[in-house]
């Protein structure tokens, strides 16, 4: 489903060249739950951004469903992000000016053929799954960190994507809340077959997933 061949990411300034990813080769199959671990600055988040089409590699080939991503136009990339991928960010990235419901509806806003009624219905379903159906009219600032992360997961679920990319989804949460979020992701993977790639610092959480990949200084080490 996702195939990375010799993926490189180099950040270049006038004086310094920083290698964030160094010839990464990786395949992730449909329905897998993969966790990526490594120290800060080892390139985990960069990897996730590249898989999620938020950033472009400076070298190598990324393929989605057998087609190189480079061959897609900007519009097609936007379409892929909308239809295929759902993101969960460490710092939630909710839009503070929108209510919980409006935030969760966001991916469907950019999907052709989904009307307002269906949008709301699917957003309610997603909020149900994360146990926040009573908070639809609240604003992000009125929620706890755990609740915000659950809204972010509901937003990723609302679009029913095949792949969920989670960047340290439990990183800002206490252990109890972290367990809850982890259980949610595991259920999603088991029951709906959603492919999940999760970046984490927490080995305990990572060991719950099917496959653990370790990174160090931009390279895959295990």
């Amino acid at each position: 489903m996702i195939k990375l061949t010799d993926i490189e990411k180099v950040y270049q300034t006038k004086t310094i060249e920083t290698v964030a990813l160094n010839r990464v080769n990786l395949s992730i199959n449909k329905g897998e739950f993969v966790s990526v671990m490594g120290p800060s600055g080892c390139g985990k988040s960069t990897l996730l951004s590249i898989i999620g089409l938020l950033d472009e590699p400076t070298g190598g080939v990324l393929e989605l469903d057998g087609r190189p991503v480079k061959s897609y136009s900007d519009k097609e990339l936007a379409h892929l992000r909308n239809q295929k991928i759902g993101f969960v960010f460490q710092s939630y990235h909710l839009i503070n000016d929108l209510s919980v419901l409006d935030n969760v509806e966001l991916p469907l806003l950019y999907r052709a053929g989904v009307g307002g009624k269906e949008r709301r219905q699917r957003a309610h379903e997603a909020l149900d799954k994360v146990g926040l159906s009573a908070r639809t009219t609240h604003f992000p600032s009125q929620l706890s960190g755990g609740q915000r992360q659950r809204v972010a997961i509901a937003r990723a679920l609302a679009g029913r994507p095949e792949i969920i990319l989670a960047d340290e989804p439990t990183g800002n949460l206490d252990s109890v809340m972290g367990e809850e979020i982890m259980d949610l992701l595991l259920t999603l993977n088991r029951e709906e077959g959603t492919t999940i790639v999760m970046v984490t610092h927490d080995e305990h959480q990572a060991l719950k997933t099917e496959r653990l990949i370790r990174f160090f200084d931009g390279s895959q080490v295990g």
Binding site: A78, R81, H93, L94, L106, P107, Y110, R155
Partner: peptide, 9 residues
């Protein structure tokens, strides 16, 4: 960024 990540062109 969020809007782009979720498919806004």
């Amino acid at each position: 960024g969020v809007r782009k990540a979720f498919g806004a062109t």
